[in-house]
Design a protein around this nucleic acid. Sequence first.
DNA 1: GTATTTATCCCCCAAATAGGGGGATTTTGC
DNA 2: GCAAAATCCCCCTATTTGGGGGATAAATAC
Lengths: 210, 210
Amino acid sequence: MYNSDNIRIVIIEDDKTIRDGYAFLIGQTEGYSVVNAYASFEDAAKKIATDAPDVILLDIELPGTNGVEAIPKLKKIVPRANILILTVYEFEKLIFDALSNGASGYLTKNTPAAKIIDSIKEVQQGGGPMSVSIAKVVINSFRKNQDSPLSKRETQILELIYNGKSRPQIATELFIDLETVRSHIKNIYVKLDVNSRADAIKIARDNKLI
Amino acid sequence: MYNSDNIRIVIIEDDKTIRDGYAFLIGQTEGYSVVNAYASFEDAAKKIATDAPDVILLDIELPGTNGVEAIPKLKKIVPRANILILTVYEFEKLIFDALSNGASGYLTKNTPAAKIIDSIKEVQQGGGPMSVSIAKVVINSFRKNQDSPLSKRETQILELIYNGKSRPQIATELFIDLETVRSHIKNIYVKLDVNSRADAIKIARDNKLI
DNA sequence: GTATTTATCCCCCAAATAGGGGGATTTTGC
DNA sequence: GCAAAATCCCCCTATTTGGGGGATAAATAC
């Protein structure tokens, strides 16, 4: 019954046209079987265990439980399935939420058919396929502000504050006096125009200083 | 002199064989010119301004200034150049450091020639090319632990602690009593077996609970 | 080569915060 | 219906924080 050469795919996508389109496209390809296609997470939840998919193509915008919320729930039902997000949205928060919830890849719907097919195989093999536009967002998210107002030492101390360290802990870690730490923190506060650790962290993150 | 149809490329790579290999490979391709190739950042620094590269292919392991450190320095000299890392290393820390320092893409040296050529164009057009293996590391870095010992509320509070918020601030933000915040934090500390904010943050990050 | 920034250290102070201990009650999920 | 989760209450002290006010040597910048 289960052909090990075949990648078993389940599609969860509310738009019937798109759903059928993907099912047709993928089903036609040698080595790929679409075992089922659902219009919502609720529909899928009932039967997906018996579908035993290798890969789940998941839309973000779904009626009822949205795609991001559906990810951990799907993972609970079929832990070995890799989830590949297929959506029009390119918002940083959505991408990060999907990935942190357990998605293994993220494609936008303008992705060419051949690339979708490739990505299914890639995710099946443990890779992490992304659209070009998504990769760009992800890479940019790492990039730090290159013209930070903070000195190296200040940045270093701000990072320790970010890690929840107290002033005495920072002093010990950097082998400097407690008062030196104080001075640096005061200067950081002046430069960032804040007067608390929480605000400093917020400003620093918003401006990618750390 | 400057052919706008041509992507101007500079290679910084200490291994002569590899360096010449890339230079030949890329130079042969229509629309791509290797304007110069250097064995170290120090060599490159002197002349790269006049090279006016669109894309810099940069090795991580270099004599003298290493690749990661070279990135911000190169960015200062030629701000408009996109830096593409080409290395054998796949360590998470190295990848993140390179990207946060301003690299626009990250390829491993086993990448097929055609993919390297494509990636140069992609980075030139503002994309963020990555090798399959790198994409996997990057995507995995986002993934949260799916079987956290913490409840939703506890995770939420731990995230606020992570943001440097004090107990009163957390209480206000969540519309709950200060004592309730205390209880949650106590429970978090018990579950994570810690007794300070800094330790809680460390354990939480190491285990990807937040 | 002078000026600015940076990194280092010192003192004063009051208020806020954290963490440890001991509970209780209600709501929610399986 | 039971266990976990979320809510709230009291005791306590030591630590931490942030706002003032400085100084000095070294490194960096122009």
